Simulated assay, not measured.
Amino acid sequence: MSATVPTLLFVLHLVGAILWVGGMAFAILVLRPALAVLAPPQRLALHAEVFRRFFLIVWHAMPIVVASGWALLFGWYGGFRDAGVHVHVMNLTGMIMAGVFLAIWFGPYARFRAAMGRGEAEAATAAANRVRLLITANLVLGLVTSIVAGFGRWGL
């Protein structure tokens, strides 16, 4: 593999991770607290638009992060045997993060969309809160993954 290919894969991996983890950080640390100034119906409408746009980004970023990570793992490191512990941890936490996102999409986010479609504000609010909790868990995983990546790449 020429040096250009792993560099491109690494850049794709990094940009995808920045969009995914950064989007979660913005949503939890900035957007969520700022929503308090809106009335509940406005809050739900904004959630609907934010979720729709952000999850579209994640549906693109997540497969890019996974595919580029595996391409680097098998094309650059030669597989798990020759990869450092940090790569193993990144793979594990990345797969858990992907699973959590899928759980959000097919679970509380699907319930949120359905409740919004039926005009059931209470059910939509409960589902949005569940989405928030799972995004918070995924944010923690994403930050741990980023920290492990940084220390694994550059050492202590």
Results as ranks from 00 to 15, higher is better:
residue 45 A to F: 05
residue 9 L to W: 08
residue 131 V to E: 01
residue 67 A to L: 15
residue 151 F to V: 09
residue 96 I to T: 05
residue 77 Y to I: 00
residue 6 P to W: 03
residue 102 L to M: 13
residue 73 L to S: 08
residue 80 F to S: 03
residue 102 L to W: 11
residue 28 I to Q: 06
residue 9 L to D: 02
residue 76 W to K: 11
residue 118 R to M: 12
residue 147 I to A: 15
residue 65 V to P: 08
residue 143 L to P: 03
residue 72 L to P: 00
residue 41 P to D: 01
residue 50 V to I: 07
residue 149 A to P: 01
residue 16 G to P: 14
residue 115 A to H: 00
residue 24 M to Q: 13
residue 58 V to G: 07
residue 15 V to S: 04
residue 12 L to V: 13
residue 90 M to F: 05
residue 150 G to E: 04
residue 27 A to M: 05
residue 83 A to R: 01
residue 90 M to D: 09
residue 21 V to Q: 05
residue 88 H to M: 12
residue 34 A to H: 04
residue 18 I to V: 15
residue 103 A to G: 13
residue 30 V to E: 01
residue 85 V to R: 07
residue 134 L to V: 08
residue 131 V to L: 06
residue 148 V to G: 03
residue 43 R to S: 11
residue 131 V to Q: 01
residue 24 M to P: 01
residue 69 G to E: 08
residue 84 G to S: 10
residue 51 F to L: 02
residue 45 A to E: 15
residue 32 R to P: 00
residue 42 Q to D: 14
residue 82 D to Y: 06
residue 75 G to K: 01
residue 45 A to N: 14
residue 52 R to I: 02
residue 15 V to R: 08
residue 87 V to H: 13
residue 23 G to Q: 05
residue 34 A to S: 15
residue 153 R to T: 13
residue 76 W to I: 00
residue 7 T to I: 11
residue 102 L to F: 14
residue 146 S to W: 01
residue 35 L to F: 01
residue 13 H to T: 07
residue 18 I to H: 07
residue 48 A to T: 12
residue 53 R to Y: 05
residue 47 H to T: 03
residue 17 A to W: 10
residue 43 R to G: 06
residue 31 L to I: 06
